[in-house]
Write a protein that binds this DNA or RNA. Structure first.
Lengths: 340, 340
DNA sequence: TCAAAAGTGTTATCCTTACACCCATGT
DNA sequence: ACATGGGTGTAAGGATAACACTTTTGA
C-alpha cells in the first residue's frame, strides 16, 4: 500500500504559483427600530451610490486568535456598537466574482458574519462621524417585504420579467443539475403551485444575479440575459456584499424559528406587540396575534416587568423582559408561528 | 461629516505585519454501508495513530473560481469518488488552535465541507492505493451512537468525569457569558432534566476539548482540567479535523430533518428498511418503523421500482427509488420522525 | 411449522390554526 | 361614548406517537 497521498498535497501547497490571499471579515450588523430592520453600511469613497459597503476589516492571525475576536474588535473600534449575538454565515472564495484583477492584486476571501444589536444614542455619534449609515434592509431587497401584501416590484416588474425569460428559449435552460430556469424560478419565488418561502432570500438574489438583472451582474462583467438591461432591482453594494446581506437575511429568518435570537434586537423592556412587530420586520410577513402570544407564553421566553407602556394610544400594554435563564433550562425555542 | 473610515481599513490591509495566509479545503466525505456511517481519512505519514487527517487540499484562486470547484477537483483527483451533494460547513481561523508555530510558517485557514457519496468498487481500488481508509464515524465520537441505548462510554466514563468536574470549584466556572460548566454540560449532554439532543455534536466535542479530555487538547498545549489525564475519548485527528468532523455530524443530523439529503447516501434502489437503517445510522438513534414509513409515503419521496429484495431472509421487501422530481414540485421535506 | 422480516389499520393525543370576543385607556 | 390598541377563551382540524396485527418468504 503506497501512501504518497499526503506528500502530494503537502508538496503542492508550497511551490505552485499562488496569489497572496487576504481574509476580509464582513459584518452584517442588524438593528430594528419602529418595525424597520436596518443594516449598517459605510459610504463609497467616490460617492457612487451603488458602491457602499458593509463594515469590513482584514483578519490578522497574529493579532487575533479567532475570526470572531477579530470581528468584534474592528467593529468595536469602528462603531462602538455593543455587539451581542454574532454568528458566522458563509465564506465566499469568489468575492469579486468574475471581476478582472491586476496580476499582483491579492485574492480576497470574504467571511460573512451576522451581528445583532440595538441602536444607541452614544454609538450614533460615532457612526455619524464615520459617515456610517443605518439603511433599511429592504431597500436592498424590496421584494422581500410582504408585510403589506405582495410587493409591487414583484408583481409588476420581477414576475413579468422572469416569466418572459422562462419562455425565452435562449435563457430557459439556464440552470444547474437538471433544473431549468423555470424550476429555479418557481422554487425560489414561489411561482406556480408553490408558496413564497421567506427563507429563500439567497436563492432569489442568486437567480437574479445569474440573469443579470441586478447591478452587480453587469459590474462583474456578466452578459445580461435580459433584454431590458435597464431593469435593476434594489440598491447595489461593493464587492459581494449584497450576497452576504442576502445570506444573512436567509439565515436570520430561519434562525428566528428555532432559537430566541429576536431578543438580541429588542430593548430591555418591551411589549408583546413590540416583539411581534420586530419578528414581522425580519420575517417579512404578518403574524397571527393570539397564536404569537401563546407561543411566547408557553415557551416561557419572557416575564412581566410589572410596568406598562402607554405609548401607542390605546390600552396600556404590559412590559416584558427576556427570561435569560430559559437558555439554561432547556433548548430554548424560537418563534415559529403561523402567518396571517 | 468625515469619511475616513474606509481609508483606515484599506490602509491597514497592506502595511501591517501579517503572516502569509493559506486556505485549506477539508472534505468530510461520508458514506453508509450496512448501517454504519463511514468517513474517509488519510493516514499520517509517520504512522501516528491519532494523527490521521481528512482529505484536504489547498485552494488556489488562480485555478478555481470557487471553493466548491476546487474541492470537487482535488477530491476527484485524489479519490475518484463520485461526489454528489456538497455543502460548506464552517470556516475556522484557528486551525491549529493554540499550537505554536515557526515565525515564517504560513497561517492556515480551514474551510470545512460536507460531501455525501456512495462506496463503489472502482473508487475502492484508488483509495487502497492511496492508503485512504473508510473509518466508522462513531469511532471518533463513540458517545454519539445511541442505537443500542445509552453508550457505555457515556454512562461509565464521560458522565462521571464531567459530573466530578462540575462539582470541583476549580473548574466549575469554566464557561462563557454567564454559563457555568454545569449549564454547558447539562445543555450539551442532556444531563439533569434535559433530553439528549443528537444535533449538539459540536457542543459536546468543544466542551470536552475545553476540559482537556480529548487528545487534541493536550497536543494544542492546553492544560488539562481533568485530574485523570489518561482519559482520552475517541480517536484523534490531525489539526482541527475532528472539530470539522463534529461540525459535519451536527449539520447532517439537522439537515436530514428538513431536506431529503439521505438519498445521496443510498444506492439507486433500496428497501424502506434500508432507508430507515441509513437514517438511524446518521441520527444515532432508533426510529419508529410505521411512522417512518408513513412519513416517507406522505412526503412522496420515493416510488416503487416494481422489484423486490430477498436479501434479508424474511419476507421479500419492495424496492424503491428516490423521486427526484419532488425537488421541483415543492420544498422537499426531510425525514423528521419520532424516536423509538 | 416456525422464525424472520415486511407491511398495514386504527386510535389517542397534542399542537396548530382560526374564530370571536372582552378590557383598559385617551380624547 | 367611542376609537384604539391590548389581551383572552375555546373549538375544529390536522399532524404525531403509539398501539397491535397480518403477510410473505426461507429453512
Amino acid at each position: 500500500m503506497i501512501t504518497t497521498c499526503q506528500d502530494t498535497i503537502e508538496i503542492e501547497m508550497a511551490p505552485e504559483q499562488t496569489p497572496s490571499i487576504e481574509i476580509a471579515l464582513n459584518a452584517v450588523i442588524v438593528s430594528v427600530v419602529d418595525s424597520t430592520p436596518y443594516v449598517l453600511t459605510l459610504p463609497d469613497l467616490k460617492g457612487r451610490p451603488t458602491m457602499d459597503s458593509l463594515p469590513s476589516g482584514p483578519f490578522n492571525p497574529l493579532r487575533h486568535r479567532t475570526f470572531e475576536i477579530g470581528l468584534r474588535e474592528f467593529v468595536h473600534a469602528q462603531t462602538a456598537l455593543p455587539l451581542g449575538y454574532v454568528e458566522q454565515l458563509y465564506t465566499f472564495g469568489d468575492r469579486g466574482r468574475y471581476t478582472k484583477k491586476e496580476a499582483d492584486e491579492p485574492h480576497v476571501i470574504s467571511v460573512g458574519y451576522l451581528a445583532l444589536t440595538r441602536q444607541t444614542p452614544e454609538s450614533q455619534q460615532m457612526l455619524d462621524q464615520l459617515g456610517a449609515k443605518w439603511r433599511p434592509w429592504y431597500s436592498f431587497f424590496p421584494w422581500e417585504d410582504w408585510r403589506e401584501g405582495k410587493p409591487e416590484i414583484l408583481q409588476n416588474h420581477i414576475d413579468p420579467l422572469l416569466n418572459q425569460l422562462c419562455r425565452d428559449t435562449k435563457t430557459s435552460n439556464t440552470g444547474v443539475s437538471g433544473f431549468k430556469l423555470k424550476d429555479r424560478y418557481q422554487l425560489s419565488f414561489g411561482a406556480g403551485a408553490l408558496d413564497w418561502d421567506e427563507e429563500r432570500v439567497l436563492d432569489r438574489y442568486e437567480l437574479m444575479y445569474a440573469l443579470g438583472v441586478v447591478p452587480e451582474s453587469l459590474r462583474d462583467g456578466r452578459t445580461s440575459l435580459s433584454s431590458q438591461d435597464h431593469v435593476r432591482f434594489g440598491c447595489g453594494l461593493q464587492f459581494d456584499h449584497r450576497r452576504i446581506l442576502a445570506t444573512a437575511l436567509s439565515r436570520l429568518r430561519a434562525k428566528l424559528k428555532y432559537r430566541p435570537v429576536i431578543f438580541e434586537l429588542m430593548p430591555d423592556e418591551f411589549t408583546l406587540t413590540d416583539l411581534q412587530r420586530t419578528v414581522e420586520a425580519i420575517s417579512g410577513h404578518h403574524l397571527h396575534k393570539q397564536n404569537f402570544r401563546r407561543l411566547v407564553e408557553v415557551g416561557q421566553l419572557v416575564e412581566p416587568t410589572g410596568g406598562t407602556s402607554t405609548a401607542t394610544g390605546g390600552r396600556p400594554a404590559a412590559l416584558y423582559r427576556f427570561r435569560r435563564d430559559i437558555l439554561k433550562e432547556r433548548p430554548a425555542p424560537g418563534l415559529r408561528v403561523s402567518r396571517n
